[in-house]
């Protein structure tokens, strides 16, 4: 009984456990698995990351915008869905130019609202990919 009172008393002078999150940022650990970042200039379009991704959150969709060039012969465009990604880092382990073309940053993914490309728009992209 007395030990409980002593504990309750010492607790009065302890720092609160709660982090004041929205006001102060949370300290990230070194290994935090955040957003996957892509650098178009470094990519060699081997499509290994697309095949490796378990949920299929990386798609190289054929489109007209980037003109076909030496590296990108089929004029593919990298598309990434952070609301489908499971952040398992499998794509980066598959990437032959990891740390250059594809990296995992410690940025946290964005909160989506209506109008973001989450589900139905992504389904259209998947159909585009399958159609070729």
């Amino acid at each position: 009984m007395s030990s409980q009172f002593i504990k309750a008393f010492t607790n009065l002078f302890k720092k609160p456990q709660t982090t004041t999150y929205p006001q102060d940022a949370i300290e990230r650990t070194e290994n935090y698995r955040g957003l996957i970042e892509y650098t178009e200039n470094e990519c060699i379009y081997c499509l290994k990351c697309e095949k490796a991704c378990p949920p299929g959150a990386i798609l190289f969709v054929p489109c007209e915008d980037p003109v076909p060039n030496d590296k990108n012969k089929k004029s593919l465009k990298y598309e990434y869905n952070p609301w489908l990604c499971i952040y398992c880092t499998e794509c980066i382990r598959a990437c032959p130019k990891a740390e250059l073309a594809l990296t995992q940053s410690d940025k946290k993914p964005q909160i989506g609202v209506k109008g973001d490309r989450v589900n139905s728009e992504w389904t259209i992209l998947e159909q585009l990919k399958k159609g070729v």
Binding site: T29, E30, N31, Y32, R33, I86, Y87, C88, T89
Partner: peptide, 9 residues
């Protein structure tokens, strides 16, 4: 999280 990079999965 420190070991694997994520809290749960």
């Amino acid at each position: 999280e420190k070991i694997s990079g994520n809290r749960v999965q």
